[in-house]
Amino acid sequence: MRFTSILAFAATAFAAEKGFNYGATFSDGTIKHQADFEAEFNSAKNLVGQSFTSARLYTMIQGDTNGVIEAIPAAISSGTTLLLGLWASAGSAQFNAEVQHLTDAINQYGTAFTNLVIGISVGSEDVYRTTDLGIASNAGPGATPDTLIGYVNQVKGAIAGTTLAGKPVGHVDTYNTWTNTTYTAGLASACDFLGVDAYPYYESTKANSIDNSMSIFWDDYNAVVAISQGKQVWVTETGWPHQGPTMNQAEANLDNAATYFKETGCSLINGNVNTWWFTLQDQQPVVPSSGVVFAVTGPGMPPPTTPLFDLSC
């Protein structure tokens, strides 16, 4: 396969993390608390067929108390590693608050927290939302590469001299945003790692049936590796929905979700690539308003440990 050499590089470069993405709220907007995060993290660790022991976050701020997000003590309690996220599309004042909560977490939880941190993501798909495609998709406010370069350097300065010093600081964006190098090359230079979000299901300008999904994904990933300037490339979001509309040739159903995990997911796991799957449970307590459901488990808290499809590799 075309991705063999990339997998060999990844396997020798670092030990892989395997986890899910976790929002700060449930699908109906209810804010998650420590017990909710703990329930999710423990269910992920105990899923039949595959144990997921890492969590990717999008913010450092607990929405209802304005304190440090309660995913941090939940991770400490459950032994879950963390790819931290700082929201970067709400302006400099909000980003300053994200950085302050990052330093607050260091001071509050010490090495019990910082030893779990795999890396720090400055933003998520912020540049995509400023592109013509993002604007046409009504994706919401974003941030330019120059703004994000400043934020990356701000975070590196904030953790210097702390127990987070030396942890990689990067940015997450869509594969086609990263490969627009006339726009993003400077941002890639500023980052220690590049996080890539890639969903063949949504790539409706391609022949994106489930039969082609694995090759589309690896073409996307390899394209980011090619422009990464030697930086590590982590898979921060991918998955296939089991509910939702047909996108060109891509059909959302359980069989296809299972196939995508068995082929693409297992190739990432076996290839030792840092991967945060989308997602453990995105339909609790209600189906997302988009109607597109990527959940690996069914509804309920704690999330069921028997997945909706086979996760073994």
Rank of each mutant, 00 (worst) to 15 (best):
F3P: 00
S5E: 15
A10F: 14
G23I: 03
F26P: 04
F26R: 08
G29S: 07
I31C: 14
K32C: 13
D36K: 02
V48D: 10
G49Q: 08
S54F: 02
S54Y: 04
L57I: 13
I61K: 01
G63M: 09
D64Y: 13
A71N: 09
T81P: 02
L82N: 02
L83Y: 03
L84V: 14
N96K: 10
V99F: 00
G110N: 04
F113E: 15
T114P: 11
L116W: 00
L116S: 00
S121K: 11
S124T: 01
T130P: 08
G134H: 12
T144G: 08
T144K: 02
P145G: 00
Q154L: 11
G166M: 07
T184E: 11
S189I: 05
I210A: 02
S213K: 03
W218V: 04
V225K: 06
A226E: 12
K231S: 12
Q243A: 09
Q243Y: 01
N248Q: 05
D255Y: 05
K262W: 09
W277Y: 15
Q281G: 05
V286E: 11
P288L: 13
S289I: 12
S290A: 09
G291S: 07
G291K: 08
V293R: 03
F294A: 05
F294K: 01
D310G: 04
